[in-house]
Amino acid sequence: MTDATAPTRTPSVITKKTEDEALDVVPVRHYGRWAAAVTAVVALIGLAGSLAKNDNLHWDVVGDYLFAGLIFDGLVTTLWLTAAAMALGLALGTVIAVMRLSASPVLYGLSSLFVWAFRGTPLLVQIIFWGYAAALYSQIKIGIPFTEVTFVSWDTNAVLTPAVAALLALGLNEAAYASEIVRAGIQSVDPGQAEAAHSLGMRPALTMRRIVLPQAMRVIIPPMGNETINMLKMTALVSVIAAHDLMSNIQEVYAQNYQVIPLLVVASCWYLVLVSLLSIPQAWLERRYGRGAARSQSNSAVQRLFGSAGTPWARRTKKEAGR
């Protein structure tokens, strides 16, 4: 038995629906966007050609010093300063972030004072301060406070060498910024996660290490990657205390031959190479810790450049992915 009043689907409706499904939707053409892109590319080519033909750059000097031994010596110092300062800043910053989230007013006050002091003064001032700390304390002593009893002492200039002073300045300054990044990451995790861990008998320290921090990494990694890249460039400031980094060695050379611009081009080339290399693990870590989030599947810069939605290549890729 069939219901005579039930609507019937005519073949024309089925055919029309099939034709609609077969339609190829073409996005709107953004001609203004293409015109702006062409203008930008032409301007970039013109700038590159002008720099290539500029005799004042002395490309022969750039070629002579690009792979010189003193440049590689400075690169080694720059790299280990970046790695050590970021390690010190991240470790100390994590401790300070936990202290700022503590219910203890003493821990909260001390950590807030640290962040206020090191984030509120310029990094260049901090580098100079640590470099000339011997003018404040000629001896580093360990003893009983407010007495003349001293157990051991060291000469300040012997302990705080330019490299150590640079590491302390960069690491402590980074700790102030890293603490805020880590604190924001911890607060982004649902408090119910920690409560569930505590209900299972996990200690607060274990909960923070095994439950909260792994989930907070998705929020921490992107800004911390930017901090690492920024730290690499900020190492150039330690040249004011002659820490023998890349910029220090560059300055020593152009102070003798007066080829300032060519040697700055050499420094810029190496900084660009190092920053580009650091961007690769940063992108991998963002994808690694961002798994499961909708925004973690974003395309790379090359894919966004050549795979925009309006290009035939992108439409062909989407069709192949849908098969």
Rank of each mutant, 00 (worst) to 15 (best):
A91C: 06
L92R: 01
L92K: 05
L92S: 06
L92N: 01
T94R: 08
V95R: 00
V95K: 01
I96N: 03
I96K: 00
I96L: 07
V98M: 01
V98A: 01
R100T: 00
R100E: 09
S102M: 14
S102L: 14
S102P: 03
S102Y: 11
S102Q: 13
P105V: 05
P105I: 02
L107K: 13
Y108F: 14
G109P: 03
G109R: 15
G109S: 12
L110Y: 05
L110Q: 09
S112I: 10
S112N: 14
L113W: 02
L113C: 03
F114M: 12
V115N: 04
W116M: 02
W116T: 01
A117Y: 04
A117E: 10
A117W: 07
F118V: 03
R119S: 04
R119I: 04
R119V: 00
G120S: 12
T121N: 11
T121A: 12
T121F: 13
L123I: 05
L124A: 14
L124M: 11
V125Y: 13
Q126M: 06
I127T: 15
I128R: 14
I128C: 08
F129Y: 13
W130H: 02
W130V: 00
W130G: 00
G131E: 06
G131Q: 03
Y132V: 09
Y132T: 12
A133M: 11
A133L: 15
A134T: 10
A135H: 13
L136C: 09
Y137C: 03
Y137T: 05
S138P: 10
S138R: 09
I140P: 06
I142V: 09
G143D: 14
G143T: 07
G143H: 10
P145D: 06
P145E: 06
F146W: 14
F146C: 00
F146P: 01
T147Q: 07
E148K: 11
V149D: 05
V149N: 09
T150N: 05
T150D: 08
T150A: 01
V152I: 13
S153V: 07
S153P: 08
S153I: 02
T156P: 00
N157C: 08
N157Y: 05
N157M: 09
N157F: 07
A158G: 08
A158L: 08
V159S: 12
V159N: 11
V159R: 10
V159C: 04
L160S: 09
L160D: 04
L160Y: 12
T161Q: 08
P162V: 06
V164Q: 08
A165R: 14
A165C: 05
A166R: 09
L167S: 01
L168R: 10
A169H: 15
A169M: 15
L170E: 00
G171L: 04
L172M: 13
N173D: 03
N173E: 00
N173Q: 02
E174D: 07
E174F: 02
A176C: 02
Y177C: 06
Y177H: 13
